[in-house]
Computed example of a mutant assay.
Amino acid sequence: MGDPPAGNELAELYATHARGLHHYLAARVGSEIADDLVADAFLAFWEHRDRYDPSRAGTKTWLYGIATNLLRNHVRTEERRLRAWRRHGMRPAGADDVSGRVAEAVDATVLAEELSGALAALKPADRDVLLLTAWADLTPTEIATVLGMSASTVRVRLHRTRTRLGIHLRTREGRTDDA
């Protein structure tokens, strides 16, 4: 393994990657939560810097992997909390359905309204592949490292997801042709 980054190197990494990482996360869960997730990602990077191996992945890839895992944990925790509230007949003030809020964030920041439903309906791994490509500008190899799958699996998932979304859009437009 290479030498772990020193404190000033961490500041440089933050200056280089924090804005893009925040943009990616904010598009998924909103700006306030993204603020916390970015901070947590850099903290995790720092705390586990001795495990960083630059021969396996670049720092951007490692950071997006950390952030994606934190995002997944956040969404799972929030979904469990909302299901528990629903089971007990409780509804916190201002709480909306998680998928509705995700769809709204996607609508407002990146995708047209008719695409957000299709995006929300994707399997989480397929959605991660698509959004890491589109919003984080990671390569299939980098995404494979982030998600712990092969680059060929990433390419197949990306192709299938794009095809499904294209079919969804054509169907919504009332077209079923391949034009």
Rank of each mutant, 00 (worst) to 15 (best):
L165A: 04
R28N: 09
T176G: 15
R127G: 02
D128M: 00
E32L: 13
W135K: 07
A118S: 14
D35G: 09
I143V: 12
R49C: 04
A18D: 03
V29F: 03
A108C: 10
A121E: 08
Y52R: 08
P4G: 04
L70N: 06
D97L: 08
R86S: 12
L147K: 00
D35F: 06
V98D: 06
G20H: 00
R101G: 11
G148W: 13
I33R: 05
R170D: 02
L158D: 02
T61R: 03
T133N: 08
F45M: 05
L10N: 01
L132P: 01
S150Y: 13
L131H: 03
A95V: 09
A67Y: 03
L10E: 06
V102I: 15
W85H: 13
E173T: 14
R101P: 02
L37Q: 01
S150G: 15
H17S: 06
T145P: 00
S116D: 01
T161A: 03
A121H: 01
Y64A: 04
L122V: 10
G2W: 01
E12S: 13
A41G: 09
W62S: 07
N69K: 11
T161V: 11
H48C: 05
G89L: 05
T59S: 12
G148L: 14
T163Q: 14
L122N: 06
M149Q: 12
L132N: 00
T68D: 06
D50P: 05
R127D: 01
L10F: 14
A34H: 04
P92D: 09
H159C: 08
W62C: 07
V102C: 01
L43Y: 09
D126W: 03
L13V: 07
T139A: 10
E104C: 07
